[in-house]
């Protein structure tokens, strides 16, 4: 009895975690299951909570209603390019804020941090007008480039640098004869890998899941990204939900792979600084 009482907090916590995990993964499992059923099976009552036999049919239907692999390629191009350039630009900018003293530095940094409080929806129309002015409407470039030096990324990396890169290291590198670019590339970047991985996965997910920007920027169907293409299927007569669900599930796979690839370093980045090392 006393043993049970002693274990109760642990058991409750584990039960809570298990319920949370179930709630989290339910939509993924549900989408995967629905991707193996026909439209009529999905609409039956009660809905089937098991894997069906219509996977190939749904796949064929998916390719019939949308150029799935082209669209997936577009999404990958936008997300990968955007992630690489964002991580590069944000880390360079953060290095500037971290390593140099210049007039108005704190004001610029403050304004930049304050800009994070503006709701993204509020910037949609100015964003559209800017993109139109620049003549990059209906291009993939407009999907990833304008956000490649974003305040959140710069803030995140700069804060990480403050806690994990000693200023003596910068001085030592200068005395060793390293140029500013060399210090950034050879000394600072290797030391901030965890936060780079964190930012990479955040940006990758954000670009992959982005719906609003493609909606206002992209108009040619051959340039659609996944979110836009899957949403457009809803306007097809008798929406083939099995195919839509299969497409949705397949679109999640790159995210899962990215997370598996970066998760260890991402966790290190998120928890860094929490405990003095």
């Amino acid at each position: 009895m006393t043993k049970l009482v002693r274990l109760l907090p642990r058991i409750s916590m584990q039960a809570f975690l298990m319920v949370s995990v179930c709630i989290t993964i339910f939509p993924f499992v549900w989408v995967a299951m629905m991707g193996t059923h026909s439209r009529s099976e999905i609409y039956s009552s009660p809905p089937p909570f098991y894997f069906g036999t219509r996977l190939l049919e749904n796949y064929e239907k998916l390719l019939e209603v949308m150029p799935f692999w082209t669209v997936l390629g577009n999404s990958l191009l936008v997300s990968v390019l955007g992630t690489i350039v964002t991580v590069l630009f944000c880390s360079m900018c953060a290095f500037g804020f971290f390593a140099y003293e210049f007039r108005g530095k704190n004001i610029v940094f403050g304004v930049m941090v304050a800009s994070m409080m503006v709701p993204p929806v509020l910037t949609l129309i100015p964003f559209f007008l800017t993109v139109k002015f620049l003549g990059i409407l209906d291009t993939h470039f407009a999907l990833w480039f304008p956000t490649s030096a974003n305040a959140m990324g710069i803030f995140l990396i700069r804060q990480y640098m403050v806690t994990s890169v000693s200023r003596d290291l910068l001085d030592a590198a200068k005395v060793d004869g390293a140029s500013d670019l060399r210090i950034y590339w050879s000394v600072v970047l290797p030391l901030i890998k965890p936060v780079l991985a964190t930012l990479a996965i955040i940006v990758f997910i954000a670009l992959w899941n982005n719906f609003l920007t493609p909606l206002i920027v992209i108009s040619s169907p051959e340039k659609y990204v996944l979110t836009l293409a899957l949403r457009s299927l809803q306007s097809v007569a008798n929406t083939p939900w099995g195919a839509v669900m299969l497409g949705t599930f397949m679109s999640m796979i790159p995210l899962l792979l990215a997370f598996l690839f970066f998760s260890k370093q991402m966790m290190a980045g998120l928890t860094a600084g929490a405990v003095k090392g």
Binding site: D168, A172, A173, L191
Partner: peptide, 8 residues
């Protein structure tokens, strides 16, 4: 340097 400043 006092802190050695070795590249970790």
């Amino acid at each position: 340097f006092q802190s050695y400043a070795l590249y970790p």
